[in-house]
Amino acid sequence: MAKRNEEPDDPRPIRRLLRRLVKAPAAWSLIWPLLLIVASYFAMTRWYAEYLADQYRSIDPQLVSVSQPHRYVRSDIVDEVYRATDLAKLSPLDRQATAKLASAFASHPWVRHVQSVRKLPGGKVDVQLEYRVPVAVFHVTSDKHPVDSNLYFVLDGEGVLLPTEKMTLDDTPDFIHIEVREAYPSGEEGTPFGDRRVESAALLAKLLMAVREQIRIAKITVSGDPRMNLVPQLELITGNNTRLFWGSPPGMEQPGERQARSKLVDLLQGNFVQGSDLRIAETPQSGRK
């Protein structure tokens, strides 16, 4: 039996493989899909990847919306956060994008808490914020050093220093004033004042702020020697200069001292006279002053 002529050896194996594939038409059903996959991969890595990188290089601040702030927040929160942080470099494709956004906005002195961050279609971002609310103004007073009579600091109910750049002296009558002589802030905007007497007074101002006009509270001061009182003892001065002894800050009452709610009821009902001690129940000798 005659032998079939064998194909001459080809020193180029790839060429030999292609020849065999050509002779096997069914193989093209596998080759063309593979070629398309390879071509698509290179197109995506070279062109589409560049397109994605350009489109999602960073989060556009114009597409970021935040909760409507109250009237004392007079600055652009989004713009200030972007300028103070690295959000301009944050890509929306970053898996930690929402967490990083929350951390950045939480650093703003007007922001008390970031409630939520949501990425929306079209590259938009919605940030829900809880803002700090100013309740008191602290004026620097001193018997030892000359001070600027116009120097003041705005505080929230936790004694945190708030921005004053956009506020004026015309805003100060809206708040309860705090006066503690020889006290100076040691913190920055967005941090506690740094003096427990002032922070305690701010806590009381938060309680009284809603009824300030009704009670006509003008000022909160601190009485006694702070070195002797572990808990600051507070006094109230009304608009007609009636002085009342409040006692401990709300929630920090000493043994035998009336709770803040009982003291507040006396104030609202006018159960006080000049020099009344609200720590103990008293029967007023005259009407409200």
Rank of each mutant, 00 (worst) to 15 (best):
A104S: 10
P13Y: 08
S58V: 00
P61M: 06
I178L: 07
A27H: 05
S91W: 02
L18D: 01
L264E: 04
L162M: 12
S103G: 09
R46P: 00
I220W: 03
I77A: 00
R212S: 06
P61A: 06
D60I: 04
P69N: 00
R112G: 14
E6A: 12
W47H: 06
I237L: 13
V73W: 00
L101V: 12
E213H: 11
D143I: 08
H113T: 09
K219H: 08
V38S: 08
V81C: 06
P192W: 08
L230D: 14
M252G: 07
A102N: 05
E7R: 13
N271F: 10
M252F: 13
A27R: 06
G190P: 11
A97H: 01
R196V: 14
S75G: 08
K89Q: 14
V127S: 02
A202R: 05
Y48R: 07
L264N: 05
A26W: 13
V127W: 02
V73L: 01
V114F: 05
Y131H: 03
Y131L: 02
E188C: 05
F193P: 06
F105E: 01
R181P: 01
S286G: 12
A104F: 04
I178H: 03
R12M: 11
Y152V: 10
V231M: 07
D143W: 07
S75N: 13
F153Y: 15
P134G: 00
T238S: 11
E189R: 15
A201N: 05
A281K: 14
G190S: 11
Q214K: 09
N5F: 08
A102L: 05
F272Q: 00
A104M: 04
R12E: 14
S276I: 04
L30N: 04
S276D: 01
H139N: 11
D148F: 08
V133K: 11
L264V: 06
I37A: 15
G287W: 02
S116A: 14
R212P: 01
N229E: 15
A88D: 11
V154E: 00
W47Y: 12
L35S: 09
